[in-house]
Protein backbone atom coordinates (compact mmCIF):
# COMPACT_ATOMS: atom_id res chain seq x y z
CA UNK A 1 0.00 0.00 0.00
CA UNK A 2 1.41 3.32 -1.05
CA UNK A 3 0.18 5.05 2.08
CA UNK A 4 2.48 3.10 4.39
CA UNK A 5 5.56 3.43 2.22
CA UNK A 6 5.44 7.18 2.32
CA UNK A 7 5.52 7.45 6.12
CA UNK A 8 8.42 9.65 7.15
CA UNK A 9 10.99 8.76 9.79
CA UNK A 10 10.12 10.49 13.05
CA UNK A 11 13.63 9.92 14.42
CA UNK A 12 15.10 12.49 12.03
CA UNK A 13 12.54 15.07 13.11
CA UNK A 14 13.39 14.50 16.77
CA UNK A 15 17.07 14.80 15.87
CA UNK A 16 16.41 18.06 14.00
CA UNK A 17 14.55 19.67 16.92
CA UNK A 18 17.05 18.66 19.58
CA UNK A 19 20.02 19.39 17.32
CA UNK A 20 18.89 23.01 16.96
CA UNK A 21 17.95 23.27 20.67
CA UNK A 22 21.30 21.78 21.68
CA UNK A 23 23.31 24.25 19.60
CA UNK A 24 21.31 27.25 20.89
CA UNK A 25 21.70 26.17 24.53
CA UNK A 26 25.39 25.43 24.05
CA UNK A 27 25.97 28.91 22.66
CA UNK A 28 23.95 30.44 25.52
CA UNK A 29 25.93 28.40 28.03
CA UNK A 30 29.36 29.23 26.65
CA UNK A 31 28.87 32.85 25.64
CA UNK A 32 26.04 34.37 27.59
CA UNK A 33 26.03 33.16 31.19
CA UNK A 34 25.32 36.20 33.36
CA UNK A 35 25.71 36.70 37.09
CA UNK A 36 21.93 36.76 37.41
CA UNK A 37 21.83 33.33 35.75
CA UNK A 38 24.45 31.99 38.17
CA UNK A 39 22.39 33.26 41.09
CA UNK A 40 19.33 31.40 39.78
CA UNK A 41 21.07 28.12 39.17
CA UNK A 42 23.46 28.20 42.11
CA UNK A 43 26.45 28.30 39.75
CA UNK A 44 25.47 25.27 37.69
CA UNK A 45 25.76 26.15 33.99
CA UNK A 46 22.51 24.46 33.01
CA UNK A 47 22.43 25.75 29.43
CA UNK A 48 25.88 24.33 28.74
CA UNK A 49 25.20 20.89 30.17
CA UNK A 50 21.69 20.50 28.80
CA UNK A 51 23.00 21.68 25.42
CA UNK A 52 25.66 18.97 25.49
CA UNK A 53 23.08 16.42 26.62
CA UNK A 54 20.72 17.35 23.78
CA UNK A 55 23.48 17.04 21.19
CA UNK A 56 24.39 13.58 22.50
CA UNK A 57 20.72 12.63 22.33
CA UNK A 58 20.55 14.00 18.76
CA UNK A 59 23.55 11.91 17.77
CA UNK A 60 21.99 8.77 19.26
CA UNK A 61 18.68 9.34 17.43
CA UNK A 62 20.51 9.95 14.15
CA UNK A 63 22.68 6.88 14.69
CA UNK A 64 19.61 4.73 15.37
CA UNK A 65 17.89 6.04 12.23
CA UNK A 66 21.03 5.31 10.18
CA UNK A 67 21.63 1.80 11.52
CA UNK A 68 17.97 0.75 11.36
CA UNK A 69 16.42 2.74 8.52
CA UNK A 70 12.66 2.57 8.02
CA UNK A 71 11.73 -0.35 5.84
CA UNK A 72 8.69 -0.25 3.65
CA UNK A 73 6.55 -3.18 4.76
CA UNK A 74 6.33 -5.94 2.20
CA UNK A 75 2.63 -6.14 1.47
CA UNK A 76 2.95 -9.46 -0.34
CA UNK A 77 3.59 -11.23 2.94
Amino acid sequence: MASRGSLFDLRWIIALLFGVYGVVLLVMGIGFESDADRAKTGGFNVNLWVGIGMLVFTALMALWALIRPLRIPDEAK
Binding site: L10, L17, Y21, T41, G43, V46, M54
Partner: peptide, 25 residues
Protein backbone atom coordinates in the same frame (compact mmCIF):
# COMPACT_ATOMS: atom_id res chain seq x y z
CA UNK B 1 0.84 10.53 17.86
CA UNK B 2 4.08 11.67 16.20
CA UNK B 3 3.69 15.00 17.97
CA UNK B 4 3.03 13.24 21.25
CA UNK B 5 6.36 11.42 20.93
CA UNK B 6 8.12 14.72 20.23
CA UNK B 7 6.21 16.32 23.11
CA UNK B 8 7.31 13.53 25.42
CA UNK B 9 10.97 14.32 24.76
CA UNK B 10 10.44 18.09 25.08
CA UNK B 11 8.61 17.66 28.40
CA UNK B 12 11.42 15.46 29.69
CA UNK B 13 13.94 18.07 28.45
CA UNK B 14 12.11 20.54 30.69
CA UNK B 15 11.72 18.30 33.75
CA UNK B 16 15.19 16.77 34.08
CA UNK B 17 17.14 20.08 34.12
CA UNK B 18 14.54 21.56 36.47
CA UNK B 19 15.11 18.69 38.91
CA UNK B 20 18.90 18.75 38.59
CA UNK B 21 19.25 22.52 39.03
CA UNK B 22 16.74 22.53 41.88
CA UNK B 23 18.60 19.77 43.72
CA UNK B 24 21.88 21.59 43.09
CA UNK B 25 20.42 24.73 44.67
Amino acid sequence: IYNEVLQFFVIVAMLIPLTVVGLHR
